[in-house]
Amino acid sequence: MLGEQYRVYYITCMSEQSEILRQRRKSTSESASGRFITLKDGRKIYEPARGGKYSKAEIRAAVKQAREVRLRAEAG
């Protein structure tokens, strides 16, 4: 009886551990290749994991600044 309970307990533990490992492998591979995020307007878009020559922060700042330049020019 105790042996059977232990067997069920062992199988449950191993199954849970496999699932954790599977999820961990999946999230590592997803984070290396980027991910899909939801925009303010509800659309899903691809976000790369990292930049190439420039850092994410450098590109974000340049894009923000360029947008401000354009909006100022459009406003006259």
Binding site: G34, I37, L39, K40, D41, R43, I45, Y46, E47, P48, R50, G51, G52, K53, Y54, K56, I59, R60, A62, V63, K64, R67
Partner: peptide
Amino acid sequence: PTFNDLLETVSEWQKLNAEA
């Protein structure tokens, strides 16, 4: 800009210019 940089500029641009 490299291909990854290009993707990054588009992605950041999309985030910044998304309409709420």
